[in-house]
Amino acid sequence: MPAPRFSLLAALLGSVLCAGLGSCAPQASAPGTVQSSTPLSRVSFYPQETGLRWAYQPEGETAGGVPYVVQNLGPTLFGGEAVTATRMTGRGADQTWYRVADAQGVRLLGLRKPGVTVRLQPAWLEYPATEAWRVGLTWTGQSQVTLVGDDGTVKGTGTLTYSYLVQERRTVRTPGGRFDVWVVTRQISDTVGGLFPATQQLWFTPFVGEVRTPEGLLLTERNFAPRSGGQP
């Protein structure tokens, strides 16, 4: 008497189903990457906390393009001084600023671009003391500029002169949201070949940062929320 073929047929059907579904055996999940993150529990008037990140696009550009990304890298040393490093990347850009924020405001000690470090002495006052903001506020200054190559040699020296005017306070809307901004005009001259554009307008919002950068970039998103009570 022939042996029943049901068990063989079932096995064949099982093989076909397993092949169609990829596998009937449990699959190990792909391993994740080793990363770190910094919880953002608060943001200061001049945002300096490690891990804060902003995305920008040029004003007038079609939305959805590749952004420039600015991120606070955290505390480091620059010329032997404790500073906060902030880096911009995207579209081939790679620039890091070294700043100190204290009771006098925000001071820029220098910056780094591929192949060169720019040192400023005394530090450039980018923003005033927090309580000083008002329409009509002005501040000026002058710094000695030293350009240092990656090999440590001095590539150039000169003088940077800057002036700021707070023109108005108004509400603006960008892809990043609605903001109450201080409108500031910045004028710069230098003797090192026009390292910085001569005149720019920037928009600053406390507890948010630059809504419009001096380079004409508008804020499109950020990785932190406004403060409670509606105040940015």
Rank of each mutant, 00 (worst) to 15 (best):
A93H: 14
S23E: 01
V211S: 00
A28R: 15
T38Y: 15
E215I: 05
S15V: 15
L120N: 08
I188L: 10
Q142R: 15
W139K: 02
S7N: 09
Y162K: 03
R178Q: 13
F78Q: 06
A82S: 13
V183T: 09
P114K: 00
E131W: 13
T153G: 06
V69G: 01
R212A: 01
G177D: 04
L8F: 13
A11N: 00
K113M: 12
A28V: 15
L108I: 11
K155R: 15
L165Q: 07
S36K: 13
V116S: 00
T213E: 07
L125T: 02
A129F: 11
L202H: 07
G90W: 14
V148E: 11
Q35C: 14
L217A: 01
D180T: 04
L21A: 12
A3K: 12
G149E: 07
D190H: 08
R178V: 15
P67E: 00
G79S: 08
Y68T: 12
R178N: 11
V208F: 00
P206D: 05
T213Y: 08
F78E: 06
L219R: 10
Q27K: 14
Y164A: 05
L165Y: 05
R186C: 00
P214E: 03
G105C: 08
P114R: 00
Q27R: 15
R212P: 01
G105K: 06
P197L: 02
K155M: 14
G158F: 02
Q142C: 11
T130V: 14
G230C: 03
T220L: 11
V211G: 04
V154H: 00
V106L: 03
T117L: 02
S7R: 13
W139N: 04
L137I: 10
W139V: 09
G152Q: 02
R42Q: 14
L17K: 09
V211A: 01
Q201R: 15
S163W: 11
A123Q: 08
S163M: 03
T199K: 14
G60E: 10
D190L: 10
L219G: 09
L108H: 12
G136Q: 02
E210G: 07
D94Y: 05
E168Y: 06
E215K: 08
